[in-house]
């Protein structure tokens, strides 16, 4: 079957045999966007978190057919090195990653959080950021999330249209 959606701002259509194929594999192996990670395949670790119509989705458990007509953002489309997303900028400033494998999922989940809640409290972070990091970067991640919120607020103050 053919599925058409927008990914990272670009219209895309893919041909797949089984519409129930997890979107993760379409993104990684058909579209060759390798930033979205396979961690567990059970929607338990969050390494495959992407945005679907602005909502955080764990795409290892999201049938490709459901993507029809949707706006999808992966880590590759969140920001660029020249123009990083505030979450990515904060991640760099706090030097968060260690092994780095879980980080795209955390960054996407945080981007989704800041969309809904531009100034999350520690409790909001604890509730919403439930991905798994084995290197134990949680301590720096929390600092980076608060910093990202501040960076985003600055951007909005400078250019309200960005919001």
């Amino acid at each position: 079957m053919k599925i058409a959606f927008t990914i990272n701002g670009r219209a895309q259509s893919v041909e797949i045999e089984d519409g129930n194929t997890p979107l993760l594999w379409v993104i990684r192996d058909q579209l060759n966007l390798k930033g979205t990670k396979f961690g567990c395949g059970k929607a338990a670790c969050g390494a495959c978190t992407i945005l679907v119509d602005g909502e955080a989705v764990r795409c290892c458990s999201y049938a490709a057919k459901l993507a029809e007509g949707k706006q999808i953002t992966t880590i590759e489309g969140l920001g660029t090195r020249a123009q990083p997303h505030p979450v990515q900028q904060a991640w760099i400033e706090e030097v968060v990653p260690q092994c780095g494998y879980c980080q795209p999922g955390f960054i996407m989940a945080t981007a989704a959080l800041l969309e809904k809640n531009p100034a999350p409290t520690d409790e909001d972070i604890d509730n919403n950021i439930v991905n798994v990091c084995r290197c134990g970067t949680y301590y720096r991640m929390r600092k980076a999330i608060h910093r990202a919120a501040a960076l985003q607020a600055q951007q909005v103050a400078v250019n309200p249209k960005n919001q």
Binding site: G35, T74, G79, P84, I92, V95, V96, G100
Partner: peptide, 19 residues
């Protein structure tokens, strides 16, 4: 000194074995 692998890990470059 800032980590040399910071950017690939924050922008999702394909750097791991499974990539």
């Amino acid at each position: 000194v800032q980590r040399v692998d910071l950017a690939p890990k924050v922008f999702g470059s394909p750097i791991f074995g499974l990539d």
